[in-house]
Simulated scan of single mutants.
Amino acid sequence: MTNETATAASENPVQRLFEPARLGSLDLPNRLVMPPMSRNRAAAGGVPTPLMAEYYAQRASAGLIVAEASSPSQVGYTYPDIPGLFTESQVDGWRTVTDAVHSAGGRIFLQVEHGGRIGHPDTSGLVPLAPSAIRLPGYIHTPNGHGTPPVPREMTTADLQDTREDFIAAARNAVRAGADGVEVHAANGYLLNQFLATSTNHRTDEYGGSVAGRIKFVVEVVRAVAAEVGPERTGLRISPGNPHNGIEVDEADELFPALLDALAPLGLAYLHLAYASPTPLFAELRRRWDGVLIANPSNPEAPEADPIPADGGVAAAARILDAGADLVAIGRPFIANPDLPERLRTGAPLNPLRTDLPLYGGGAAGYTDYPVIGASDTQPVPA
């Protein structure tokens, strides 16, 4: 890229989003990532469906798709109708999805998420596991409606070993299913994030207490997954500062840099920061991470009534690119706009999110029936 082109790109945030990028062995046509967003439309047994394949293929123009959270085990299930990655039927279902995305010219990673204490016997048939026997505050969604979260069972040494093996097997299954890679989910209050947090990890063994103890299990899991499928096919998602699901992390300014220092030598495909904003901690993590950094930015332009900003997320994307991100994950605009990259590139109108339909569960309505350019009657993206 010439100096003139670079200057023009820095002044035009939309143009910057459409610069090509490299991620592991993949060439990305743009810097827009569709992040993992659970939609709860898997079939019985956590099997991905042809409808899910259609949904993801519609959005294959993203530089990268990171598919919704998939459980590595029965006990790892979070909510009803979440897909899994631990049975042959699930692998076959995901293969239908990845084939559809690749046929449409896209690239797709599958996210592996163990819920930890975010689970319920009505969903999984099992008492959930967690670093410590500390109940999730509030309620949890179950097949029977809102339920009281159970007190999880504190994980034993054997449970830790079994869970590591579950992550390894799920990553292997993702690659067998045709995925370009896997994202290990250590964000937003789920199991691996629970090990990092002082509010959920009260262990007194080598996996608790100090910063080194609290990052230990996450490091072990990520190293094991990278060893199984290759670091160039392994990403990690974290969410510093996000209190969702009762998460409080003491010494965050020390813990997250220590986590990155332990993992940076592996040469992972990427680090994915959820709820990112240009804070001093973001700058420090960027400094310590030599590889690709995906940022899912906090977006103050998104109104509560319709969490799609008028510009489709371009302003937030520009801020986080300026702060050092390489790729930008834009979430809900992709739900309502399967052709979001083309709409942003051309300034075409955006579809609003259909708040009259549920985001979670259901069929094609509000899922695969959002129109593409030329079939919508919405307001244009501001210049």
Rank of each mutant, 00 (worst) to 15 (best):
P303C: 13
T279R: 03
D322W: 07
V328W: 02
P278C: 11
G324Q: 04
E284C: 00
P309T: 10
G313K: 14
E284P: 01
Y275L: 12
G312H: 08
R287A: 15
Y275C: 12
Y275I: 11
A302T: 04
R319D: 15
P307Q: 02
P280Q: 06
D311L: 12
E301P: 08
P309M: 02
D322E: 15
I294S: 03
L293Q: 00
W289P: 01
G313F: 09
P278N: 12
S298E: 15
I308W: 04
V314A: 08
A329L: 08
T279L: 05
N299I: 09
I330H: 06
A295H: 14
L273Y: 01
G324K: 00
W289E: 04
E284Q: 10
A310R: 14
A315Y: 08
L285N: 07
F282W: 02
D306Y: 10
S277A: 13
L293K: 02
I330D: 01
I320W: 01
P309S: 15
A274V: 12
R288Y: 07
T279E: 10
G312M: 05
P280K: 08
L281I: 08
R319C: 09
G331P: 06
V292I: 10
R286D: 02
D311C: 13
A283C: 09
P303K: 13
R288N: 07
A276I: 03
A316W: 04
A274C: 11
N299W: 05
